[in-house]
């Protein structure tokens, strides 16, 4: 655990140094007030600290939108993905639909979603779910397709029903792949969240960042970006913890 924390601290230090270096170079090369556009890490961290009271409600709102979207996407994506991967007729019927729908850039639907679901949280959540569910479904489908027949037979020959095969074989076997897809979804989800919070809202980290741009508060922009990083890191750590608890068998050398 200790070594884990020190690894994170070293990474943080290294990234901060790179950032500081980049900001330093920009200040030397770019003339005039433009040089302030890339705020340094010390200023950004102190803004994060001093303006935390202003950032916190935005952080909470963004976190809530993202977590709810992730939960819905994992439920929808994993359920359909596992069924498509494990039941051949479902695969034949639904895989082509996923292949057609997945590559379409979902951002084109954002105006439609805002009109249909209003300007509240619901429309943002629907948009993020639309962006990440396909990806979870595809990963789950592939994981279910690769399930070893001997494990299925072991449960079937011991009198297990189809539902029990899902409970004892399909879900636990696919869980590591599902959690990997959740990790990818966190990154995708934050990008989608940023797009969804850019317009017609008065709360959220993207709103906070955009607002800071408008008033030229560059250090606040980077404080907002740092808050996004904290949100992502927190979610990654939670997924790691879930994996350590539920996929213990995967950690045995």
């Amino acid at each position: 655990m200790k070594s884990g924390i020190s690894r994170y601290l070293i990474s943080l230090l290294f990234l901060t140094l790179l950032w500081w270096l980049a900001a330093f170079i920009v200040r030397q090369v770019v003339p005039g007030p433009k040089s302030m556009v890339l705020s340094g890490p010390i200023k950004a961290f102190s803004m994060l600290f001093y303006h935390w009271n202003a950032i916190w409600p935005n952080f909470l709102r963004s976190a809530l939108r993202l977590v709810i979207s992730l939960l819905i996407s994992v439920f929808l994506g994993a359920t359909t993905g596992l069924i498509i991967g494990f039941e051949k007729p479902a695969d034949r019927l639904l895989s082509p639909m996923i292949y057609i729908a997945y590559p379409i850039p979902k951002i084109v639907f954002l105006p439609v979603i805002l009109i249909l679901f209003g300007l509240g949280d619901l429309s943002r959540i629907v948009f993020i779910v639309l962006v990440i569910t396909f990806q979870v479904a595809l990963s789950s489908r592939d994981a279910a397709k690769n399930i070893s027949n001997r494990h299925v037979k072991a449960v079937e020959s011991a009198g297990g029903s189809r539902l029990q095969v899902y409970r004892h074989v399909v879900i636990p076997a696919a869980l590591p792949a599902i959690l990997t897809s959740v990790r990818i979804s966190i990154g995708l989800g934050i990008a989608a969240l940023y797009l969804a919070e850019e317009s017609y809202t008065n709360q959220g980290l993207a709103y906070y960042i955009n607002n800071s741009w408008k008033i030229f508060a560059y250090s606040d922009v980077f404080a907002g970006i740092l808050a996004f990083a904290i949100l992502g890191l927190g979610l990654y750590l939670i997924v790691d913890l879930i994996e350590r608890i539920f996929c213990k068998w995967n950690y045995i050398a």
């Binding site: 001997r150 494990h151 037979k153 072991a154 449960v155 009198g159 636990p172 068998w249 995967n250």
Partner: peptide
């Protein structure tokens, strides 16, 4: 049928249990 047990060639132990 519940009184018939089968041992598979590959055993089929579930690695997650």
């Amino acid at each position: 049928r519940s009184k018939v047990a089968l041992i598979l060639q590959e055993i089929g132990l579930l690695p997650w249990k």
